[in-house]
Structure formats: structure tokens, C-alpha cells
Amino acid sequence: MKKYLTITVREQMQGMTVEKVLYDYLELTKKQVSRAKFRPDGICKNKVRCRVTEEVSMGDEICICLETDEIQSAQLVLAKIQGERLCILYEDEDILAVNKPAGVLTHPAGMHYSDSLANQVAAYFQERNLSVCIRPIGRLDKETSGIVLFAKNQVAAQRLQEQRETGVLEKQYLALVDGNLPKDQDDIWHTIDFPIKKIGNHPLRMEAVKKSSSAENEKYIAHQLTDYINCFQAVTHYHVLYSTDKWSAIKLKLDTGRTHQIRVHMQAIGHPLLGDSIYNTSTMNREQCTIYRAALHAWKVRLRQPFNGRKIELEVPVPEDFKKYGGFYVSSGS
């Protein structure tokens, strides 16, 4: 999808090179500027193609082409479920946010090569004659419902990824977990800081490596050190909204985004997600649970528009299969 940025030279920019204006005032990287050089009319001054070493004068108009229509996800099979079936929460020229239902993959995988969320987004863009490369910003497990963001151009994707890494882009989740967790007062969050590693050759299953301040013998210590070498840092924060003697409703936020992180961390502290067939083997889950997928929902996202910095906050309702449990009395300011 075509993406241009334009800036008019102000007094304080006079005498700078085009390149310096692009770096300092449009906050572009050397790689992004370098790519633009090879596009037709990629970098122009006053609508005439120019070199980045040229100096600018007050009132000059500098325009850079960050992406063309040639970049798209041609390898994606268009979903049989047409684009209008997407639940679109927000869209502008750089971002698309959709509400993913449980049971849908974010990306094609295995036998699901034409019915993922990415396939549906590709169909949506084609229906509108837009050539867009499908770039999800993070992803959700198949069983997880809620907000998924897509960037419409490479620079937006890079800036949103930076927001994720610095905590500017924050996603919050709602979950139902096994067992009783005491209800928290406002603004109280608990932290789970266990590294996560893969289990053997299993393609998805993970486990938490619990930190220990003491060990019975040197062999155990050596085993722990080996575990840490082969695992990934993972930090999860949770707040208890409501609890019964059998289950609790919580909200969560992450410092890291590892595969199955929430599911693994909640299992590690003895409160696995309801409906989780991989990490929850409790009697309650097998015999009394009436939710048939891992009970996790990405309900809120806060971010900034990647080019103008405007604050964006998105929220989706509690899914139907959660409602029978209740307990999700969350406010917009939470």
C-alpha cells in the first residue's frame, strides 16, 4: 500500500541536508531512507526527485515514498470467509485492528492455510482494491479471542514493534483460572517472573523454569543453570477481579510476549486457565468446566498512532463463553 510522508521546511531546518531532515524531523532510519532512494520519485524536493545530500531552504516541501503498491502478501490464499465478516474495531491509513474469535489462527499453519485471520484480512483488503502486505503486530493463540493489530506499511510495523518493546503499546487480557485467588484492591498487581522453555521436541508446549534460591546438591544447581541457558525471559502481571472457591476472574498484562506465556505462568503458580486442555488437568477442569477453550481474551490495547503520536485506546466486550461465569467488572480506566 502506498505510503508517503511530506514535511515543509521550517526556519530551524534551513541549511540542513534532505537526509538530516528525514532523520531528525520525520524520525526515519537509515535503512528506510536508503530503500526510498531506489523507488521512482522516492525522495523529492518541491515535487522534483533529489539527492539526500542537497540542502533545503525555508518553505521547501520534502516528500518521501516509504512503500509502494508492489509490496503485498501475494502468497496468502484469500479466505473463503469474506472480508466483511471481520469484526473491525479501528482503521486508519496505517493500522487495522480486529476482534479475533476463539478458534481462529492468526497466521496460516498446518492444515489451516486459507482460513486464518491473516487470510481474512487479505480478502478484506482485496475487496477494497488495496495492495497491503499483511503484518500482524504480535499474535494470539488459536484458542485466545480478542484484539489483533495489523500494520499497513513497513514503517508503521517497525514503530509499533518498538512501542511493544518499550511498553508504549500495552495489551491487557481477561482470563478465568482454576482455584481461589483473593480479590485484589484497585491498582494491586502481582508479578510472575519465571523464564519459559520448550518441552523436548513438542512444537508448542512450554514450561516455566521456577527460580530457586537454594538447592539440595550441586547436581540440581547445574540442572537449573542448563535450564536457564535454554529458556526465554518471561514476565506476567495479574490482578484478581473476582473469585469463588473454585475459580477466579483476573486481568493480566505482559512485559514479554512468549508462546503460551500466560497459560504457562498461571499453571506454574497453581492456577491454570479454565478450559486449557494442555496445561490444566484438574478435576474441576475435566468435569465441571463449561468453557471449551483456554479461557483467555485480549480485551484492551493502548498505543500511539505510529506517525502522528495520537493516543489510541481500543476495547472489546467480554466474550459470550465468559459471561456465564461473571466477575468481569472492569472499567475503562483500569
Results as ranks from 00 to 15, higher is better:
residue 7 I to L: 11
residue 8 T to H: 06
residue 9 V to D: 00
residue 12 Q to Y: 14
residue 24 D to E: 11
residue 26 L to H: 03
residue 26 L to V: 13
residue 30 K to Y: 12
residue 33 V to D: 00
residue 35 R to T: 14
residue 36 A to C: 15
residue 40 P to Y: 10
residue 41 D to F: 15
residue 45 K to W: 09
residue 47 K to V: 09
residue 50 C to F: 08
residue 51 R to G: 12
residue 52 V to T: 07
residue 53 T to K: 12
residue 54 E to N: 13
residue 56 V to N: 00
residue 56 V to G: 01
residue 57 S to T: 11
residue 58 M to A: 07
residue 58 M to F: 10
residue 59 G to T: 05
residue 60 D to C: 14
residue 65 C to E: 14
residue 66 L to W: 09
residue 67 E to D: 11
residue 68 T to A: 09
residue 68 T to S: 11
residue 76 L to N: 00
residue 77 V to R: 05
residue 77 V to P: 04
residue 78 L to A: 01
residue 79 A to V: 08
residue 80 K to Y: 09
residue 82 Q to C: 11
residue 84 E to G: 04
residue 89 L to D: 06
residue 89 L to F: 11
residue 91 E to V: 12
residue 91 E to T: 06
residue 92 D to S: 08
residue 94 D to I: 11
residue 95 I to F: 02
residue 98 V to F: 05
residue 106 T to Q: 03
residue 108 P to Y: 04
residue 111 M to K: 04
residue 113 Y to L: 08
residue 113 Y to G: 02
residue 115 D to V: 08
residue 120 Q to P: 02
residue 126 Q to E: 10
residue 128 R to Y: 05
residue 129 N to Y: 07
residue 136 P to Q: 15
residue 142 K to P: 10
residue 145 S to G: 10
residue 146 G to L: 10
residue 147 I to N: 00
residue 150 F to Q: 01
residue 152 K to E: 00
residue 153 N to R: 05
residue 156 A to W: 15
residue 156 A to S: 14
residue 156 A to Q: 01
residue 158 Q to R: 07
residue 159 R to I: 05
residue 159 R to D: 00
residue 162 E to V: 06
residue 165 E to L: 14
residue 180 N to Q: 06
residue 181 L to P: 01
residue 184 D to S: 09
residue 187 D to K: 15
residue 189 W to G: 03
residue 190 H to K: 12
residue 191 T to D: 04
residue 191 T to I: 12
residue 192 I to Y: 05
residue 193 D to H: 06
residue 196 I to E: 00
residue 199 I to V: 14
residue 199 I to R: 03
residue 204 L to Y: 09
residue 206 M to C: 05
residue 207 E to K: 05
residue 209 V to W: 04
residue 210 K to N: 02
residue 211 K to F: 11
residue 212 S to C: 05
residue 213 S to N: 13
residue 213 S to Q: 07
residue 216 E to C: 12
residue 216 E to Y: 11
residue 217 N to W: 06
residue 218 E to T: 03
residue 220 Y to T: 04
residue 223 H to V: 07
residue 225 L to D: 07
residue 232 F to R: 14
residue 233 Q to Y: 04
residue 234 A to Y: 12
residue 236 T to A: 03
residue 239 H to R: 07
residue 244 T to C: 06
residue 246 K to D: 10
residue 246 K to N: 06
residue 257 G to R: 01
residue 258 R to L: 00
residue 260 H to P: 06
residue 261 Q to N: 02
residue 262 I to H: 02
residue 271 H to N: 06
residue 271 H to C: 09
residue 273 L to N: 00
residue 275 G to D: 01
residue 277 S to E: 15
residue 278 I to K: 05
residue 280 N to D: 02
residue 284 M to N: 04
residue 285 N to G: 05
residue 288 Q to H: 13
residue 289 C to E: 03
residue 292 Y to R: 09
residue 293 R to H: 01
residue 298 A to C: 14
residue 301 V to W: 13
residue 301 V to K: 03
residue 304 R to W: 05
residue 305 Q to L: 13
residue 305 Q to F: 15
residue 314 L to N: 03
residue 317 P to Y: 08
residue 319 P to C: 04
residue 319 P to H: 06
residue 320 E to T: 06
residue 320 E to S: 10
residue 325 Y to V: 12
residue 326 G to F: 14
residue 328 F to P: 01
residue 329 Y to M: 10
residue 332 S to R: 13
residue 333 G to K: 14
